[in-house]
Amino acid sequence: MIRVKNLYHSYTNDSNYAVKDVSFEISKGEIFGFLGPSGAGKSTTQKILIGLLQLQRGEVSIDGKDIRNANRKLFNSIGVSFERANVYKKLTGIENLSFFAQMFSVPTEDPLKLLKMVGLQDAASKKASSYSKGMLQRLVFARSMINNPSIWFLDEPTSGLDPTTTSVIKDIIRNRQKQGATVFLTTHNMHIAEELCDRVAFITNGEISAIDSPRSLKLKYGEKRVIVEHIEAGELTKEELSLTEEANKERLSSIISAGKIETMHTQEASLEDIFIKLTGKELK
């Protein structure tokens, strides 16, 4: 569905690349997470894919069409939810969606239905200038569905949302996937990525360091560990032990033999741990 090969981009038109030799493919109906810290090249890549930045070097095709020669009608099947809430503040929520609906030449969704989906039905007739940050984020998310897109670009769709609303947004994304939509999810929220994505790509300094499913990455790079709380010399002691290192395994055996364990939990490596391990950087 989306194919990117040897993508490069420089804002200064020299060898100082913001994106370097990025290649990946996304299948139809897949949720693909693009993970990286701020300034890693996530937005640059997405902007090239959606045509907001000119393709300088490399190949990009969406739905089998080279974006260099793509007709603007291609956007009838593309939806984009921006990280920054770029809406018309003087228009109401419903006016914003109705206006954008008129930009597409395919049947569009009912604006009120979309606003209800994201919990904005009560604010539908209020000007967007009176919306909170979370409401604006939801409005942008709802707008990205107005043309019922089959290719959906989501840039931090849950940024600034409370846990309940985040859960609603995640459900909508899953439902859309079930209906066949392909999702390109840009985020630095590893929990969202882990829950939603079929595959993720780690990007830092404009380069991709790993692409795989969250489970495979964890199996490949994660270390199985266990956290044990036990009584030793009359005091409660907490220890984190590796299940692969010999010394740690022997220590765990001796704790178990002593029979004074209070709690014991296996500890899986999180996607964030693996990101740090692979890139040496934190996701901020």
Partner: peptide, 13 residues
């Protein structure tokens, strides 16, 4: 408001 970007990802010329 950066709505130009939002319009830039529609079929509008």
């Amino acid at each position: 408001s950066r709505t130009i970007s939002a319009l830039g990802v529609t079929p509008m010329h």
